[in-house]
Amino acid sequence: MTNPTASSPVGSLPPDLSGAVASTSDASSRGIEAPRAPRRRVRTGSNFEMYSWLFMRLSGIVLVVLVLGHLLIMNVLDGGVHRINWGFVAGRWASPFWQIWDLAMLWLAELHGANGLRVIINDYSRRPGTRFWLQVLLAVSVVLTVGLGSFVIFTFDPSMGS
């Protein structure tokens, strides 16, 4: 997926002009290019950040229904949090509808939130080492949460209550 023209910042310029272009990277210009400087290739051949941007929006739309619905059911309807106990969860997970609801909410909220956190870590961590380890920690927490949450939904055992 590498772009052949991206390997050289000067692209296909004739050699006698390359020196002039290189001088635009002098610190005093602060990265502002000379007028009519050949366009630099910004794209690296990967659209990952664009898909990530789109995913935040698409998952957000679905999460509005899933999460706000979940909060309404858990905190407001029929006595809210006071009626929640093991039997209540068993009753809900007897229905595939709520199992799928919770599974979709688990995966989407976790991936949406983790992708948001990935961006935030990139924004604030100053040293590459810190950044790397925070991202590793984040990835581990995602695998743990999604794995454990899915496992619990799929292997829930209603006979424990009797």
């Binding site: 093991w86 939130g113 948001g116 454990l148 949450g149 496992f151």
Partner: peptide, 21 residues
């Protein structure tokens, strides 16, 4: 960020349904 941290804790809490009522 707040919601993300809550969710981490929430999945751990909920996983106790698999341990015992």
């Amino acid at each position: 960020v707040l919601t993300f941290f809550f969710l981490f804790n929430h999945v751990l809490d909920t996983s106790l349904v698999r341990v015992s009522p």
